[in-house]
């Protein structure tokens, strides 16, 4: 129930921002539309199993800020790396697909991990085996214990603090 109320607030805020500056008609229509969306997705939200404890929320937000900083730094490094490989005449790539063990359990954490792996140096998530806990990763330059795999481990440590 409380999750649905929070989601209602989020959708309502998005609507208000999209129709900035808000007029009375926008406010009424936004409330109706957000309520409709919440009614349609209520059972989907009930199935998701994240805990909504208020006490640890500031700690989790602080870790999320830390995650964002690490993410932006890795993303910039990734882009410079790809640009360097693209403009070399002899294309220095050695591609391959390997599987990496992950021990995150929650769905949100796995989604964030897969997305950040896609935007970090030399790796793209291809598939996810949530049952056995394997992440299949396509690498531009395959190296089993290089910097890219270490970056995945670092993301995993931070995401574990946020979502579990």
């Amino acid at each position: 129930m409380i999750k649905n109320v929070i989601m209602f607030m989020i959708w309502y805020m998005v609507w208000i921002f999209l129709s900035w500056p808000p007029e009375p008609k926008d406010i009424i229509v936004g409330a109706v539309v957000s309520l409709f969306v919440i009614l349609m997705t209520a059972d989907m939200m009930d199935r998701c199993d994240s805990k909504a404890d208020i006490i640890r929320l500031p700690v989790r937000l602080a870790w999320f800020a830390c995650y964002a900083l690490v993410f932006i730094w890795e993303c910039l490094k990734a882009n410079v790396d790809v640009a360097y490989r693209v403009i070399r005449p002899d294309l220095p790539i050695r591609p391959g697909t390997i599987k990496v063990k992950v021990d995150l359990k929650s769905d949100a954490g796995l989604t964030f991990l897969a997305n950040s792996v896609t935007l970090t140096p030399g790796t793209t998530t291809v598939d996810l085996d949530a049952g056995k806990g394997f992440l299949y990763v396509h690498m531009l330059v395959l190296k089993r214990d290089g910097r890219s795999i270490k970056a995945i481990g670092r993301f995993q440590k931070i995401l574990k603090r946020i979502f579990e």
């Binding site: 993303c75 990734a78 882009n79 790809v82 640009a83 490989r85 693209v86 790539i93 591609p95 697909t97 896609t118 935007l119 030399g122 793209t124 291809v126 396509h138 531009l140």
Partner: peptide
């Protein structure tokens, strides 16, 4: 896969 790799990031 390599094309996806380069273009999705950049």
């Amino acid at each position: 896969y390599n094309r996806l790799q380069a273009s999705a990031k950049c």
